[in-house]
Every structure is written in C-alpha cells, then in structure tokens.
C-alpha cells in the first residue's frame, strides 16, 4: 500500500464512529422530514395522511405569516450576527491582551451563557417591563424618559438582541480567544522584530491566521441566528403584533401546536435553502478575501 492509501484507510477508521452516529441520528431524521414535507401529515388526523407533492411549499409561498416570520428572522440576523462577531472579536483581543486576571474575566463573560434560556428570559422580562421594570426604574431615576422596551415594534427586536448578546457573547469570545492562543507566539515576535505595529499585526497576522476559525464563528452564528427561537419566544411570545415571531417559532407552532408536521417540514426546508445560500456566500467571501 502506498502512503496515500494507508492514510485514506486510517482516515476512514477515524471518521467511522462519528459517521455512524451522524447517519443514524441526523441523516435519517432529515430524510424523514424531507418525506414529510411532501405529505399532508396531521398528527391529529391520522386517517387523512397522504402525498401532496409540492403543495406544502406552494402554501408557504402564499402564506403571509411565513413571510412575516421570515422578515422577523432577518431582522434578528442582521442585528445580531455582525454585532456579535465584532464585539466578540473585541472581547477576545481584549482578553488576549490581559496580563493578569484573564481567566477570571473570561469566566465572568461566559457566566450568562451557563444559565438556561428560560431563566434568562424571566430575568430580562422583568428588566424590560415598561411600567414596573428595572431598566425604566433606573432611567426615571436618572431623569430620563422610560423606554417601551418590548412593547414598540421598533424597540422589541433590538431589545431581544441586547439580551441575546449578553447571553451568548461569552461563548463566541472564548472560541476566538482559543484561536488566538493557538497562534504560536514566535510568529508575533518575528513580526514585531520586523517593526510591525498594532493595526498591521491585526491585519497581516492575526486575522489571516484566524481565518478558518472566524469562518466557523460566522457560519455557526448565522445558522444559529436564522434558527432563533427561545429568546423572542420567552421575552415577547413573538409580539408586538407578531413582529418578533421568527420562522422557527412559526414552524414549531405549526408542527407541535397545530400538529401539521408536513407543512412545518416544508417551511423548515425553505429556511434551510435560505441559510444555505447565506452560508455559501460567507464561505466563498471569507475564503477569497483572505487568501
């Protein structure tokens, strides 16, 4: 056997345990949901299950609530993903530059991420409460106007994003910090000897070396952003006037409150197509811009 063949054989061995689990618990359910999406499948009407072709997809296309939910989802992604990446990168660089106390600060940043989202929702609902909440209490004491945090359409989504940032910033920061720490120190030292300064170091050394991990962070957060559910659900239940009901919440309600699994599956696949386009664009962009 040649070296390449031996390497491939070893590769298959290394891939096997994960591949097995993936096929059984992800790929199979995915195929099932693909089948569901072309069926009329209502769990409470077991006698009327039948194949309907593209009907569910056509229904979504004509469904106002689908488009409204898609708009809400986009609203969240557009605010959340860039906001999160920029602040998390800032936090990671800041943490990396700390001589002492880095571990403590990192732990504190990550602490909110360890709370489950339900408690986070209850806490922030009280903070944001318009008449009787903490934030407006503080604002009034500072002599400022109270804000309609969750009750105005223009405020609600940014309020949700602020809570989400608090909740998830630490996690993304520590991924980026781990990537920074993985860059061998010698590379920096060499660059410093060549007379490189702060911004140049960031542009020429740090960001290019960070590229694969940055790609990972951008893509996973975009996926997570498009699938947002818990945060708006717990804070506003999708209000005001359904303006913060995201697509996954609508899918969830369709599949598990209305029991229309087929229609829910079809909408999931439409969401999949949208996310896939975004991820591909990001992928090719991040590949090209830094190579």
């Amino acid at each position: 056997m040649t070296y390449t063949q031996r390497r491939s054989a070893a590769g298959l061995f290394f891939l096997a345990p994960y591949a097995f689990s993936f096929i059984a618990f992800i790929l199979l359910p995915i195929i099932v949901s693909l089948c569901l999406s072309v069926m009329q499948f209502d769990m409470t009407a077991p006698h009327s299950v039948k194949f309907v072709g593209a009907h569910n997809y056509q229904e979504a296309w004509k469904d106002d609530y689908f488009w409204q939910a898609l708009r809400a989802t986009f609203g969240y992604v557009v605010l959340m993903v860039p906001g999160l990446i920029v602040t998390a990168l800032g936090m990671a660089l800041g943490l990396h530059g700390m001589a002492r106390g880095r571990n403590t600060v990192r732990a504190l940043l990550f602490l909110p991420g360890m709370l489950n989202v339900a408690v986070t929702g209850i806490l922030w609902q009280w903070f944001y409460n318009g008449e009787f909440g903490l934030f407006n209490f503080v604002l009034k004491h500072l002599g400022l106007n109270a804000a309609p945090w969750l009750s105005e359409k223009s405020y609600a989504m940014p309020s949700i994003v602020i809570m989400s940032l608090w909740w998830s910033l630490g996690g993304t920061s520590i991924v980026l910090l781990a990537a920074l720490q993985q860059i061998p120190k010698q590379i920096f030292e060499a660059a410093l000897l060549d007379g490189a300064t702060g911004p140049a170091l960031l542009n020429r050394i740090t960001l290019p070396l960070l590229r694969p991990v940055l790609l990972f962070v951008v893509v996973t957060n975009t996926i997570a952003g498009f699938q947002v559910f818990g945060q708006p659900f717990l804070l506003t239940r999708g209000g005001p006037e359904l303006s913060t009901r995201g697509l996954v919440q609508y899918i969830y309600e369709t599949a598990f409150n209305n029991y229309r699994l087929g229609y829910g599956a079809a909408m999931s696949w439409m969401l999949f197509a949208i996310v896939a386009v975004f991820a591909l664009v990001q992928y090719s962009f991040l590949r090209r811009s830094t190579s």
Binding site: I26, Q227, A255, F256, G264, A265, L271, A279
Partner: peptide, 16 residues
C-alpha cells in the same frame, strides 16, 4: 455535516 446544522432540529423530535 455543516449543511445538516441548517435544518431546524425541532423536526427531528418525532423521528428520533
């Protein structure tokens, strides 16, 4: 594998 992450997981509940 990455593409599979883009399918909302809620739908896996019943098959799983």
């Amino acid at each position: 594998i990455v593409a599979s992450m883009m399918v909302p997981g809620q739908l896996f509940l019943v098959p799983l």
